[in-house]
Design a protein around this nucleic acid. Sequence first.
DNA 1: TATCATTTTTACCGTTTGGTCAAATATCTT
DNA 2: AAGATATTTGACCAAACGGTAAAAATGATA
Lengths: 221, 221
Amino acid sequence: MSGNAKPRATERVVAGKTRIQKENQTRILRAALDVFSESGFHGATLDRIASEASMSKPNLLYYFKSKEEIHVALLTDLLDVWLAPLREIRPDGDPVDEIGSYIRRKLDSSRSFPRESRLFANEILAGAPHIGDFLQTELKQLVEEKAAILQGWIDEGRMAPCDPRHVLFAIWSTTQHYADFSVQVRHVLGLGAGDKSYYDEAARMLDTLFLGQLISRPGSD
Amino acid sequence: MSGNAKPRATERVVAGKTRIQKENQTRILRAALDVFSESGFHGATLDRIASEASMSKPNLLYYFKSKEEIHVALLTDLLDVWLAPLREIRPDGDPVDEIGSYIRRKLDSSRSFPRESRLFANEILAGAPHIGDFLQTELKQLVEEKAAILQGWIDEGRMAPCDPRHVLFAIWSTTQHYADFSVQVRHVLGLGAGDKSYYDEAARMLDTLFLGQLISRPGSD
DNA sequence: TATCATTTTTACCGTTTGGTCAAATATCTT
DNA sequence: AAGATATTTGACCAAACGGTAAAAATGATA
C-alpha cells in the first residue's frame, strides 16, 4: 500500500531507540500527518492512522501513549520548519532581497509541505490549544527581533511606515493560503486535484505586491 | 444564559414557519455557529449545541434532521455574506477606490463575523466537502467576472501586470487571516482575548501594501 | 539453542456520540 | 372547553471511539 516518498518536514528525533522503534515511529508519524492534516484532530481516528501505517491500533499505542501525544509530536516537529524561513532574515541585507527571498522561502514551504501547513492552520483555528505557549514566547520573540530589522529599514526611509509585524502577517497569510486553501484556489482556477502549477503565478504576483507597486497611481507615468 | 446580541451574518430564511419554529431555528443556528466555529465539524457535538441553545437534543433534532443539516444550513447562509463584498466591485471606478473599498469591506467582514470566517476556513481546510460545488460554479464565475475588470485596468496600464485572480487571493488571505488566525495575531502582538485593536493597524498596512508601495526602491527619492 | 526483552496481536472495556421513539405537554383553532 | 396539531422530553440504542490487559510471537544475545 505504501511505497510513497512524499516529502516530510522532519525525520523525527528518535535517538537511543532500536531500529524497529525508529521505523515504526516514523511510519506512525507519516500516517498521522496524512490523517490529521486531512481531517483535523477530532476528525482523525486512531483506527485510520493505524490502518494507513499498516499497523494494529494497540501496536500503535505501544509507541505513542495517546492520540494527543501523536498530535503533539507532529506539531513539535513542525515548529522548527515553520520558523526556519523567518530566522534567515538578515539585518544587513537589502529590503528587496531579504523580504523577497523570505517570501520565496515561505512559498516553497507551502508548496513542499502543504500537509504540515494545514496541520498548523487547523491547530490555530482550533485556538492553538497545544502551541499557544510557543506563539506567546518563542514566536513572539523572533517576530519582535525581525520586526526590529524591518523597522530599521523604515527609519532609513527604505520601507513605507507601517507596523512591520503586520507585514509579516501578510506574508504568512498570502503564502500559506496556497496550501491551506488549495481546494478553493484550484476550484476557482479550474485546476485538477494534483495540479500545483499556480505557484509560479503566485510567486510573480507576490513579487509585484510586496516588492513592486501593484497599482499605478495617476501621474507616475 | 443567553441575552447576547453578537452580530450574525444572516437571520436565516424561515418563510412560512410558525413563530416558535422561527425562534428555535434561529436559536439553534446561533448556538451551532458558536460551537462549529470554535471546534470544527467533528469537534462539535449535538449535546453541546443543544445545551448552548438551551434545548434538549431530541428537540433540536426535531428542527434539523441531522448534525450535517445544521452545518449545511450555516454554510449556505454564509455564502451570500462571503460573496457580497466582491459583488460590489464596479468596472467604472478607479482601481484605488474599488480595490481599496473592497479590502475595507473584507476586513470589516472579518472583524464583524469572525465566527463565520472560521466556519468557512474550517470547511475549506477539510477539503470543502459541502461547498465544493459552490466554489467551482458560483464563486468561479464571479471571480472571472471581477478578474476581467482588474484585467481591464491592467490593459490600461493602471495596474501592474499579473493574474488578477491571484490578487483576489491575496486580498482574501490577508483580510481573513485576522479572523481565522486571530489567536496567533493576538499572541504575537501580546494582546488579550477580546482585544481587536489590531484591525486599525491592519487596515493601514493593507492600504500601503495594495494601494501604495511597501518598499521604496533606490532612486525613487 | 536457551534465555530474556521487545514487539505484535486478540479480545475486550467504558464512554461518547449521533440519532430514534413513544409518550407527555403545550399551543392553536373552532 | 374540546379537539387537533405542534412541540418537548426522557429513556434508550447501536456504532464508533480511545484505550487496556494479557498472552502470543518475534527478535536479540549469549
